[in-house]
Amino acid sequence: METAQNLTDTARTIPAARMAQEPEAMNQKIPYPEQTIGKPLCDDPKMSMRNVNVFYGDSQAIYDVSLDIGKNQVIALIGPSGCGKSTFLRCMNRMNDTIDICKVKGSFMLEQDNIYDPKLDVVELRARVGMVFQKPNPFPKSIYENVAYGPRLHGLANKKFELDEIVENSLRKAGLWDEVKDRLDQPGTGLSGGQQQRLCIARSIAVSPEVVLMDEPCSALDPIATAKIEELIDELSSQYTIAIVTHSMQQAARVSHRTAYFHLGRLIEVNDTNTVFTAPEHALTEAYITGRFG
């Protein structure tokens, strides 16, 4: 009973948990491949995941996924709602720890470190692997305080001017500096949706992460704000490794180097973005990118 209640609570916020409860909801006529098609692994991985299985209570949300993310690479995770791509993303910096009933099996490596090692400090991990959420979630503090939050937590600046510098640099990298430099003391919640999302990106790169995870960062934004964020992702990819979950196939095609297609908790196909969109190998991938479902 208790677990069932938990499960419903979780399902309200996490699509994969909801879908895991009712896995027959989608078209299953096309069989899954024996193993992931394409090139899920790469030579110089920043992060590598092996045989990942994720459960919400008794139901399974992710089935035996193995995937590498290359250094300074943008990888797009696509797939229909509830296919587990957001769940997979949240596992990579252990944000799923906050959900009691979520169990993660398999290995997650960030370079040489095992992410799920009990000895590993989750605080340090999240400083190395940052995250940007679907809905812009600036703190109800000033723009300056929003960006300075992370550096303050980790003691990255000893002097006021060092902190100022970090804030300015992060806002510049996020392409927001010119728009907000005169009103750094005003609340971050007063910015427009697109500006708020760029503020959240600035906030997460202020702690100099190695990897930035983005969970549908543009789904709440208008096309112009979306274009700005996409441009930004392109620029950031020179310094950071980025994994982005998106529902927009155009966006995946525009910003990513590699694309991974998830379907009902299984990783169907991974390849160079070009290949996935021009010559998908598996029928499910083709059905999705041609818009037959999703």
Partner: peptide, 12 residues
């Protein structure tokens, strides 16, 4: 919850 997630994701 988004506030908490935002803070936790920054390593708090």
């Amino acid at each position: 919850r988004a506030m908490r997630d935002g803070s936790l994701a920054l390593g708090a």
